[in-house]
Every structure is written in structure tokens, then in C-alpha cells.
Amino acid sequence: MPATATAARMVFANQGAIDSAHVMAAAADTTVQIALLPHVANGDAEAIKQVIARYGRLIWSMARRFERATAEDAVQEIFIDLWKSAGRFDSKVGKETTFVMMIARRRLIDRRRRLQTQPMCDSDDELLLLVDGANAPPDVAVQANAAARAIEQLTPGQRDVLLLSICYGLSHQEIADKLAMPLGTVKAHARRGLLAVQAATSATVEQEPS
């Protein structure tokens, strides 16, 4: 599949469409982002329910991209990991959403390597991705918004490679095959894309009030 065709199917919000005021207001609204994991670690069943309600959609959507046929198994594994890891979460060190999503991503990547699971990006329609950062949970909305802006600054080729790699879990070789792109170019695009987003999100963290 040519890179240009793939780029056409990936939908990016216009920078002007990003509702920064909404994002900032959501980020300031700490009342809806009280950390739940410490309560899960204490055996609070209601907190378990709320964690499933709060992060279920994110994890399910991500798992469905990574694994077309086995997303249910993946999600259950992820939540088991999460219950086991809840006691390690420290709100002084990081955001709860980041902690949860990092566990989820590592589990999905591990499953991809271990089980050779197949991503859901065979058909054109399934490649649609809207990048705007406006729907991220409040505690990470500012960072997600910064990531969205950084992605918008990438070349189409870099964006394609980065999103296929991060959001669908494709290996560099799989991306090279899919986009008919030299492997070295894929690696370079992936590196540059992730470096750009890392720089943008790290800068945002440094600017946040403590």
C-alpha cells in the first residue's frame, strides 16, 4: 500500500479545531480524576468498578487496534496486570492515566511478540484515526494535546509510520511491507516521530505547576 494512500485515510484535525480551552478546563478539573488505584490496592471493590468504567473504553479501543480477533483476552490480561500493579502507583511520580496506559501498551506489545497477534488494520476503513487530543482524560489532556500538535508537524510519511507503529503495534518490517517503504526509512521516520512527540510531551510536563 503506497504511503500517500495511507496518509489520505488518516484524518487529522486542523490545529484550529483543537479546543484548547476545553482541554485546559478539563485538565484543571481534578474532581473527576481522583486517583483510584490506591483504593484498588486497598481492596476497595467500588474503586475496581470505577477503574473499569474510567479506563475500559481506552483500553478496549487500543486492544482492538492491536489484536483483531483476541481483544477480549488482551483486555482481561491487562486488567489482571493492573490489579497486581495498583500498589506501585505513586501520584507524586506520575499521572494515573499514564500508568494505566503504559501497563496496557506493554502487555499488548508483549502479546504481539509472544502470540503473533494480528492488528486490525487490513482494510482501509480501519486505518482511520482522528488525532486531536481533545478527548484524553483530564489528568493527561495537556500532554495529549501537545502530542497531537507534535504529530501534526510531522511529514505524512513520518505520521503514517508513527501511528502504525504506536497505535497498531506493527513492527518496522511490517510497516515497510505495508507502505512499500525501505526498512531504513521506516526506522528513521519512527525515530524522528517519537523523538518529536517525546520532546513536546516532556516540555509540557516541565511546564506544569507542581
Binding site: 475500559g56 473504553r57 483500553i59 492515566t97 503504559m102 495529549a144
Partner: peptide
Amino acid sequence: ESFDTAGVMIELATKHDDELP
């Protein structure tokens, strides 16, 4: 974990429309 965090933020910057069944 700065690159892992960047990966998470890229993920969070995309749409997640599918509700957990």
C-alpha cells in the same frame, strides 16, 4: 520512560470510540 510516555500520549491523542462491552 520518556519514550514510553510519548507512546502513551500518541495513543491518547487518537480517538477511542469503542465502549468496553
